[in-house]
Amino acid sequence: MLGPVLETLIGGLMTGVLYSLVALGFVLIFKASGVFNFAQGAMVLFAALSFARLSEAMPLVLAFALSVLIMIALAYAIEFLVLRRLVNQEGIILFMATLGIAYFLEGFGQSIWGSDIYKIGLGLPTNPIFILESVFPGGLLIDPAELIAAIICAVMVLVLAVFFQVTRIGRALRAVADDHQAAQSVGIPLNHIWLMVWAVSGLVALVAGMMWGAKLGVQFSLSLIALKALPVLILGGFTSIPGAIVGGLIIGAGEKLAEVLLAPVLIRTFDLAGGGIENWFAYVLALVFLLVRPQGLFGERIIERV
């Protein structure tokens, strides 16, 4: 019993890493521009579609480079066409604007790249690795592609954390997040900052899209899977990079374990037509968590002033 559960746990943690990667894109934009970017999922889909279709026609490296350029161009377009025109609007308006961007990107991406299921072959090793064979009969199965994804994710997180905390641009980003007007008034160029942060999270989306695509194939549902990053954020706190990582791991592991352990119980008790509680477990977990600790695991408690 313990062996399969551990295997599920590890599988869940690996998926969790991918959630974290998507959540990271959210956090970056939220931290730097206070925008709750609902389009992050659509950006993941768009990036993955671009990469998948480009890689059919050219070497991987070239396809990656072109995809990076596409994501930067996208960031530029979003900044120029949307954000610039909504400076100093309420957060909720900006949020709804990103909802519009999400719809646009989903339609646009599928119009130009097609709407079938595409494969991404990154040439990652596919032979499963077995570990701890001495402890469990048959050992524990680990997918090396997921392992590599986890490592890439960890590296990205490290780089971004350093970038945010240490560099001058990082400081400017944090200032903008705190107060648009105040940041502008001390001479921080808002537009450049936004452009940069959207481009960076475009890159994060690209990497996330490549990993997800390699795992599941690139298809429309990718943007819905990417929505799972939302409960991850709630768990971790909207502004915390470590929060996104830990939250992703908890959600990833939690929902897989719930499917294996909780779903059979629910099916028996309520006479269900199958499990599939993965679809909502993350959200409900986040909801319950919110009631206990509204600011998330790593978020700061805000003192309300009047």
Binding site: F36, F95, D271, L272, W280, L290, P294
Partner: peptide, 27 residues
């Protein structure tokens, strides 16, 4: 207890849970 985006995510929880419940609970 929660506002704004947090609430949006909470209502998404309702959406996905209810959708699931009507697909799975045979009654």
């Amino acid at each position: 207890r929660i506002k704004g985006f947090y609430l949006a995510v909470a209502t998404l929880a309702a959406q996905f849970f209810l959708e699931w419940a009507f697909a799975r609970v045979k009654w």
